[in-house]
Write a protein that binds this DNA or RNA. Structure first.
Lengths: 333, 333
DNA sequence: CTGGGCAATGTTTACGTAAACATCCGCTGG
DNA sequence: CCAGCGGATGTTTACGTAAACATTGCCCAG
């Protein structure tokens, strides 16, 4: 910076003013400084900047295994949205979803150059974590429900599940079976609860719940079971991967979709439009979730000291995408 | 830090020594300092650290749209591997793969707190980019081939494609059709070239190449075409998504897989084991790619000044995963 | 013509850390 | 018994920036 100042024949403070787009610099001076910067290949040192300003302009994102498409899309939206606000995004990967790992990530966080944190994680892992955040670091959580303790942004899991069930009931199905995600997932839990509620409110009897683990393989196994249930004419799978496995199992057993059994998924992954048959599913707007996470955390940073604990949950609506895997009931018993 | 020093009754330098795990501090002193740190909730300020040390312990990753599973898995492996080396990872998202956006990312990079960069991107976008990297920032590129200008780590695309074709020839197919990725993708290009070479070397005549765009939808369209080619008994799709669409089209046209047509994919995405039928595919080891990217960039940083331009390409081998979509030829003409 | 005001620019300083150098003290060998 | 040595700790300083305050010089009203 001093070199630039010398070359431009100004003080380093003026260089600073130019590099921060400050008003009150003559157009002439500004151009000279910019020229000098270019000539010397000057780049502001972000460490010194951060030290002086007391902020890093960086958001930390804690998430484990970018294995689910949802987390990835959310992360991507976070990164894009953060960039628009002039923030960078630092990734805190948690290799395995164990308590130790999560604790480790949070403690590493302490030494990390980060102004705020977005956690993409089932809340129950967060709960037990020794969350000792550096003071002043705000947190927003995605993929969870704990609006009382954290600020949460999430897809409207319940609304999506309700729509899925209603779609099938509207087609004339007597009831709807549910292929749920793993027990320890809040998202799975909420989808299952909404499924049960919607059926009960419509005066239908919820069939026994079938449990999967999000994987296509577990959907396949569940599908073999469901194929043997003569009453089953409609299945709501808690995600598209399991629906994929389900379709394969039904096909193997000679059952037509939607002729014999209708299937609805959840997520609307890109591939689901090319399943056999193309899958009716609940579209999640991950981009919106990511965007709202960033907005949320930035606005919390701005308020900061004021009245801290204004937690709450923001729900992002879903959308039913009707394709060819659902139709009127027609299974011959 | 000064507060900690005061509470522990030592100088701030000793606090620094403890916090950096320096030798030459009495066990007694060390414990007192650690206690003081805990009591005051002290966290080293990473900005000041970076300023003093002249390094950020952070790697930048430039990639656009985490849309392909490969990039995501690579990114994840990079993050994990970097963490093991005590490095954080900052994401530089490029929303749309245009020249401008790439240039923008690189210029933002200049002001970013980053010691080195890993680029996950087709090289042709990098080429035209006004790549003005801060001096001393090393680069490693994944998903490309430009070993002469950059240090590159990539899956052995050619080897994988060769194995796919050989697998089909070994089963007795006269020749193998290829459903290629988009023209402007180097990965697609290399897979296509290897496909053609392998056939030619085996004395077979390569059928006309069918072009897709990586999407399942494009695979579907290609499948409708291929279904009408009576000579076609084996297809090598350049990725699993297109293979998925292909399977759907063949099924719609009443062709059995592998009875009438054998299909091989590329990538081994988790879902491919649950396709209809489960897909034979070429497994890519993205984790290894990511790991090698980090190793590569760190070792380049260590050498640094020495003899700069030691570029080269590291290839990560693939593996054929045989499932149920391939078999001996049997299509009735 | 002059003094006040204001816009443009310069000077000083502190941010938190760690390297380099300085000091202290206890122990050992002659 | 003391010089000298080495391990443990303290002191000083600089890293690059931007906020706060200081200064300059110009313009215009009185």
């Amino acid at each position: 910076m001093a070199d630039v100042a010398r070359l431009a024949g100004v003080s380093s403070q003026t260089v600073s003013r130019v590099s921060n787009g400050f008003a009150g610099v003559t157009e002439d001076t500004r151009r000279q400084v910019l020229d000098a910067m270019r000539e010397l290949g000057y780049r502001p040192n972000s460490a010194a900047r951060a030290l002086r300003r007391g902020e890093f302009r960086t958001l930390g994102v804690i998430t484990f295994s970018l294995s689910t498409m949802g987390n990835i899309r959310t992360l991507e939206a976070i990164a894009t949205s953060a960039a628009q606000h002039g923030y960078a995004v630092t990734l805190l990967p948690v290799a395995v979803p164990t308590q130790d790992e999560v604790n480790g990530a949070f403690s590493r966080l302490g030494e990390l150059a980060v102004d705020a944190v977005i956690v993409i994680m089932e809340i129950h892992l967060l709960d037990a974590a020794t969350v000792s955040l550096p003071p002043g670091v705000q947190v927003v959580v995605a993929d969870s429900d704990a609006g009382d303790r954290y600020t949460v942004v999430d897809t409207d899991q319940a609304g999506g599940a309700r729509d899925a069930v209603r779609h099938l009931l509207d087609l004339g199905h007597e009831t709807v079976w549910h292929l749920a995600g793993p027990e320890d997932s809040f998202a799975a839990q909420r989808r299952a609860n909404a499924w049960r509620d919607t059926l009960t409110r419509a005066g239908r009897i919820p069939p026994p719940l079938v449990r999967g683990d999000w994987s296509a393989e577990s959907g396949y196994r569940a599908g073999l079971l469901l194929a043997d249930e003569p009453d089953c004419t409609a299945v709501f799978a808690a995600n598209d991967q399991m629906a994929l496995g389900l379709l394969r199992a039904l096909h193997e057993r000679g059952l037509r979709v939607p002729g014999d059994i209708s299937v609805v998924g959840f997520d609307d992954i890109p591939e689901s439009a090319s399943f056999l048959p193309p899958l009716t599913t609940i579209h999640q707007d991950f981009a919106e979730v990511g965007r709202l996470c960033v907005e949320g955390v930035l606005s919390k940073m701005r308020q900061d000291g004021e009245d801290e604990a204004e937690h709450g949950t923001t729900l992002v609506p879903t959308r039913v995408v009707v394709r060819e895997s659902t139709g009127v009931p027609g299974r011959e018993r």
